[in-house]
Simulated scan of single mutants.
Amino acid sequence: MKRWLRQRVDTVYERLLSHELAGAPTHIAVIQDGNRRYARQNGDEAHEGHRAGAETTERVLEWCQEIGVEELTLYTFSTENFDRPDDQKEALFDLLCDKLHEFADADRVHDNGVCIRAIGEIEMLPERVQDAVDYAEEQTGEYDDFVLNIALAYGGRSRLLEAARGVAREVDSNDLESDDIDVETIEQRLYDQPVRDVDLIIRPAGEERTSNFLPWHANGNEAAVFFCTPYWPEFSKSDFLRGIRTYEHREESWRRTRARRALALLGAVSETELTEAQSVVDRFRDSLPTAERSELDGLETLENGDQERDADNVDGIDSGSQAAD
C-alpha cells in the first residue's frame, strides 16, 4: 500500500513540475555518481550498480529529448578511475562495450537522430573499448538532432593543459601569433568536434562538487548546478525536473542581474556605452520587478524629454527661431 501511495505521489509531483517549467537548457552535463554505493546498499557487486545506473542513463536520454534538450554529456569514466581495482575496471569496460554497441544499433537512437561522441583521452582505454567507441561514432556520425557525449578517460584540467600546450607549440613554431589567441583558439583544441556551453550540471548521490567536469564550457558559462541525494540508479524523473527548475531559476536570476546592471549604467556611462546598456535593459526588462520597471520608465521619460529639447534647439536656434542666449 505504501509503495502504491508513493508512486501516486511521485506521479502527481512529476506532473506539477512539468507544468511549472517554461523551457529547457540546451546542454546538460551529468556526473553519474553513486553506482557502487547503491550496489553496496543492496548487497550487490559494484558492476551490478553500474548496470542499474546504465538503465537510468537511458531514461535520462529520453527525458532530455522530451523537453527539448539538444546535448547531453555523461561523466562516465574519469582519469582517476584508472586507480580502481582491476576487476572493477574490467567489468566497467565490458559494460561500456555492451552499451556503446547497444546504443549504436538502437532504433530509438536512429529514429531521434542521436549523434554519439566520446570525449577524453580515448587512447588510454583498452582496445576493445576504443573499438566500441569507433563503432558508435561511425554508426551515428551523420546525425545532428541530438548530441550524446560520453566522457571517457576524462579529466577537465588535463584537457585544458593539453590545449594550452598545443597553442604554445604553435606559437613557438611561428604557426600562430600570440596576439591571435582567443577563446575560439582554445576551444578548437579541446575536442575534435564542437561542444556547446553547458547550461546545467546534475550530480546525484549527495556530493556537492563538480569534480573538474567540463570546466571550460560549464564554469565559463556560469552553468547552474543541481545536487541531489539519490544514488544515480535511483535518480527519478522528479529529480530530473527539479534540476531543470534549478536551471530556470538560475537563468531568471542571471537575466535580472544583467538588467539591473544595465539599468544602473544608464545614468553613468558615455553616449556610446549608453546605447549598449539601453539595448540590454530592453531585452531583459520583463525580468525586473514592477517597481524597477517603473524606475526604468521614469528614466526613459527624462531621456525622451532631453531629446525633445535638443531637437527644439538646433545649432543654437530655439523653436521660436530666436537666437539662444
Results as ranks from 00 to 15, higher is better:
Y191T: 02
W216S: 05
R285T: 10
E184N: 15
E162T: 05
A118M: 04
Y143V: 00
I150E: 08
G23W: 05
D134Q: 15
H217G: 11
A39H: 04
D192N: 07
T26D: 13
I181T: 02
P25G: 04
D199E: 04
R84N: 05
V12L: 15
L160Q: 05
T210K: 13
S158R: 13
L96M: 11
G267W: 00
A268P: 04
A277N: 02
A164S: 12
D144F: 07
S158D: 10
L161A: 06
G316Y: 00
E177Y: 02
Q188H: 13
L125I: 01
L176Y: 08
K89L: 15
Q65I: 08
Q278W: 00
S173N: 14
V280P: 00
N149Q: 04
P25V: 00
Q7A: 15
L17Q: 04
D94E: 09
L74Y: 13
E62I: 04
C97Q: 11
Y231T: 01
G113R: 06
E177T: 03
E137N: 05
A224L: 06
A291C: 09
L161S: 06
L214E: 05
N112R: 11
V147A: 12
R309N: 06
L17N: 05
S178N: 11
A151V: 00
D318K: 05
A24F: 12
L274A: 15
G267A: 04
H110Q: 08
E251D: 14
Y231M: 10
Q65T: 03
Q41P: 10
D239I: 01
I122Y: 09
S158N: 08
R59P: 09
L200I: 01
E138T: 11
V147F: 10
E300V: 02
E90A: 14
D105T: 01
R242M: 08
G53V: 00
D98V: 07
V198N: 04
E48Q: 15
L176P: 06
L265M: 13
